[in-house]
Design a protein around this nucleic acid. Structure first.
Lengths: 219, 219
DNA sequence: GTTGTGTATTCTGTATACAGTATATGCGAA
DNA sequence: TTCGCATATACTGTATACAGAATACACAAC
């Protein structure tokens, strides 16, 4: 039977709202999150807002300094590269595992996603593409039975995407190269070729890093 | 110049206290953390306590269900094995990197730790040994310049150690096999042999898993 | 004895009030 | 003008108060 859906708590809603604003760049790095001001803006009290902010802090999206207002976290080039190094490790490990248990449903889900990616790419709808990109890697991760690994991939990808997004906002077109690389990964999975899949993922990761550095120099 | 140390906030103190109690097993899995009751016990109000509990939840040490009391998280055999799989990946990757940049200070720190491990092992002081074990892996992780990787190793090791601790409480002696394995890792690092170091770490991880399963069957 | 229902209790989620501290402002002295 | 200091302001950290939901329990009906 279907469960009755409970309304999200105010803290949850605040968390999701602020998170989205940070990830889409509406809230810029180093921007201060003054509790009372923000609470009034959101129409809630400080208590649930504080909870949301603390949670964002453990995600690494905001930083807390005792007695001072929380602020949106900034990150250096080094931070971004560190995250990508870990992401590379996790994503390649994951796809090697996943490639061994390819199911038709799994392939179909990926195929659907890729189709939408192509459409977004053709329309130059960059934000939509970013979202689908995130989803693509999510689908891959969720195929792994190891829940802990899944969690970690989710977290690290959020961080990386944020770094990338902020830069890529200025250079959207080139980022869509990724679409082709996703296709390569898919083909390897379709052929149940775990070696090729791992290789394709590794190349994808290297290319992301390359693009990041390219944009970074320019930006 | 040395910074003036500020007193920890009540929330921080509560976090550390409860965390320790969970990790040492004083608070058993599934035990409920009733806010008002706990707050009174700790001599603080619910507000900072709530913050502490939420933070523990993101660490995976307690689970929250809306409207119901938070409870100390339990874990299945599968959870533990998942965590160990990820740990294996991260720790072997890390040591391969670290083995390339071995400094004398680093070796000395490890040597000191190993000496203490041996002493604890000889005295059958299991809790002390567990603490040093944790520290040993912490030293290895902290040698890596990648802060993100360090963070992740810390988190995952906390989880694994907890799983292991609870079981191992009943079978302390055999867990001290680990001491010898740590020595092997150290020797490989001393020789700046990254292949041997990686191999030693992998064996260590496999042995931890083996011991876990052995205890699990018995327990 | 078992099932169902209503009530009492207890707990969380949220709002608000208060205290202490850090920051900003303004004024006077050098 | 510039520095020092005092005062005012604003913000966080914490406590408490209140409302609504979940649970436990008792009692009635079968």
């Amino acid at each position: 039977m279907k469960k009755i859906k409970k309304p999200e708590s105010l803290a949850d809603q605040a968390y999701n709202l602020i998170r989205k604003d940070i990830l889409t760049g509406i809230l810029a790095p180093n921007e201060e999150l003054r509790e009372e001001k923000l609470a009034i803006e959101l129409g809630i009290s400080r208590t649930p807002l504080r909870e949301a902010i603390r949670r964002l802090a453990t995600d690494g999206l905001v930083v807390l300094k005792t007695g001072k207002p929380a602020s949106v976290s900034s990150f250096t080039k080094e931070d971004a590269l560190h995250q990508m190094e870990v992401r590379k490790l996790l994503e390649t490990y994951n796809i090697e595992q996943v490639a061994r248990f390819v199911t038709p449903t799994f392939l179909n889900t990926l195929r659907d996603n890729l189709k939408l990616q192509k459409q977004a790419s053709d329309k130059n709808d960059f934000h939509e593409f970013m979202e689908l990109d995130r989803e693509f890697h999510l689908i891959l991760a969720n195929q792994n039975p190891n829940t802990k690994l899944r969690e970690m991939i989710h977290t690290i990808n959020t961080g990386v995407n944020r770094a990338f997004l902020i830069l890529a906002n200025t250079y959207p077109i080139s980022a869509m190269e990724a679409s082709g690389e996703h296709e390569d990964i898919f083909t390897a999975l379709e052929n149940k070729d775990e070696v090729a899949a791992t290789k394709a993922m590794l190349e994808h990761m290297d290319n992301i890093e390359r693009r990041f550095l390219h944009y970074y120099k320019k930006g």
